[in-house]
């Protein structure tokens, strides 16, 4: 009897060891041209750059294959260096096949003109909504500031639960976890319009706004960032 009791209490200590929880965090890989332009000046060159996000939304260095729809107008080499040869427009495409055999592409229509014109920076928009049973909703916009920062703005329809401890807002490329996400700050406003100014971030860098209960690893909701 005594031995049984002792063994039982010892077994409880083993039962109380830290275990593993697994989370399905797979996302579709994405290839983005991060510095698109509207046109290249005739007889000049322009270096395109790309960003590849793998199947967990983390950035990887890859070598993409570059093509032009019309090499008589714009030629592009395998480093993404484009050369404007004659007036007109052509579609520039970057593509990459990842280790799992998934082909990802991004392409832009680029003109050849008198001068090189950067693509007009368009704002982004989205709708944050709950993926849990905690209240969370609100439309948002994401815009660039002149000082290089970006601004995440919510409107009057925004509403978030005050019941959760440690609710934080993030920018991320994987809406399932905060691993690799940019923590903006703890949520201070739970109702109505408000803004966050975020330094050292490109408008095209992240794909989602994520709300997460940080201390308990509970996802509350997210919104996909889309072009306006």
């Amino acid at each position: 009897m005594k031995t049984t009791v002792i063994l039982f209490f010892i077994s409880i200590f083993f039962f109380s060891c830290i275990g593993d929880d697994f989370i399905d965090d797979r996302v579709d890989p994405i290839l983005r041209i991060t510095n698109p332009i509207d046109s290249i000046a005739l007889d000049s060159t322009y270096q395109f750059q790309i960003s590849f996000l793998n199947y967990v939304g983390k950035e990887e260095e890859v070598e993409a294959e570059w093509t032009s729809s019309d090499e008589t107008i714009i030629q592009v080499d395998q480093m993404g260096l484009a050369s404007a040869k004659s007036p007109g427009s052509a579609e520039i495409t970057a593509e990459y096949t990842d280790l799992e055999g998934t082909l990802v592409t991004d392409s832009r229509t680029v003109g050849v003109g008198e001068r090189t014109v950067k693509e007009q920076t368009k704002g982004k928009k989205g709708l944050v909504s709950t993926t849990s049973t905690y209240k969370l909703t609100g439309e948002f916009t994401l815009t660039s500031n002149d000082d290089g920062s970006i601004e995440l703005a919510f409107f009057d329809d925004y509403e978030a639960s005050t019941a959760l401890p440690g609710l934080y807002v993030y920018l991320t490329n994987n809406p399932s976890t905060i691993s690799g996400a940019l923590e903006i700050q703890a949520v201070e406003v739970f109702e109505g319009a408000h803004t966050y100014t975020i330094e050292n971030v490109e408008l095209e860098q992240y794909g989602y706004v994520l709300y997460f209960c940080k201390p308990f690893n509970v996802k509350v909701g997210h919104g996909e960032i889309e072009d306006q």
């Binding site: 109380s16 060891c17 830290i18 275990g19 593993d20 929880d21 697994f22 989370i23 399905d24 965090d25 797979r26 199947y55 967990v56 976890t177 905060i178 691993s179 690893n217």
Partner: peptide, 22 residues
Amino acid sequence: SRNYMNNLISATNQELLVPGEA
């Protein structure tokens, strides 16, 4: 009294996302 939280691991690539603590 003992309080612990499990490790959080990616089911996609088995990466440790958030280490457990006690």
